[in-house]
Write a protein that binds this DNA or RNA. Structure first.
Lengths: 156, 156
DNA sequence: ACCATTATTTTTAGTAATTCAAAATAACTG
DNA sequence: CAGTTATTTTGAATTACTAAAAATAATGGT
């Protein structure tokens, strides 16, 4: 997760104030939820916030606003996994340009460090004269559980 | 582009029939348009088909159906670039798992061969027990033109 | 070449993710 | 503690895409 001095609330409050944003409990709660449930969509974050009365009054539109704002100031990273059912997902692990691996069947998503130490994927064969900012990499895969399931389905 | 024996129409017709799909002029025209305008969205393909009366009656829904079907049988590759304004894009260059580089300002998209010959990005640091299928890689960048524009804007 | 069969396309609606704008609310400043 | 103004809430719109039924057209058999 993320380094948390004193309490995570203090940590996020400091980060928000640094960027000139107000510290609302919607934002704090969203950050905590995302920190504990990485790769969540706005919809999932919204449900987690309502569940257990964390922030009973929050709306989905507010969540969208929050993730947009927090992504803009670098507290969150937005990831767009390929696929038609693709809602944007968010995570608090920012700044290291790590990648993701997703099971094409069950949708399970895990973090993957850069394949070769540095940032090898930032060295494409041809930049077409562009200045590189970052590489968005998603590995598509089939997880072990799904492979077993698929094997059964094939037998039947 | 794609190897084209005799005419490109013959080529695509053969490919369609091989897969048991009927050869309609909507499909043929879509394939030609995508071949000549790689990285087009359904909307863009739709406009290109209507323009110049290529297929005046075609509808956007049909284009969606076509790109879905042709992607399913491997005649097209679907690419999902990150970003909120992200409509899926399609290209006829399939099967080589190449990557893309996109200018974050003007949206220009170019093909990029795999960074190191083979498929280096298919070697993540940890597969989490999953079987790899492919890597979806998008390089985010700023193209030369936009860099000049940004420089001017900064001066002003 | 013609007709029947059935895939495709068209037409008409609907859904999901996200954005926009105005009113209500709640953080920060002094 | 009160005023200012960012943020949230409320309510509505947009974009990309999907779904289902009716109309059309591509292929196979004669």
């Amino acid at each position: 997760m993320t380094p948390e001095p004193a309490s995570s609330t203090d940590y996020w409050s400091t980060r928000l104030r640094e960027q000139g944003l107000r510290v609302t409990h919607q934002r704090l709660a969203a950050l905590e939820v995302i920190d504990h449930h990485p790769h969540s969509s706005a919809e999932e974050i919204y449900r987690l916030l309502k569940r257990a009365q964390r922030v009973p009054t929050v709306t989905l539109q507010t969540v969208h606003g929050i993730v947009n704002d927090l992504t803009a100031i670098g507290l969150l990273r937005r990831i767009d996994l390929p696929g038609k059912d693709s809602a944007a997902r968010y995570e608090t692990r920012v700044g290291d340009n790590h990648h993701h691996i997703e099971c094409v069947r069950c949708g399970r998503v895990e973090d993957v460090d850069c394949a070769r130490g540095e940032a090898p994927c930032l060295l494409p064969s041809d930049t077409h004269g562009m200045t590189l900012l970052e590489a968005q990499v998603t590995y598509l895969a089939v997880c072990h559980e799904c492979e077993l399931t698929l094997r059964k389905e094939t037998h039947a």
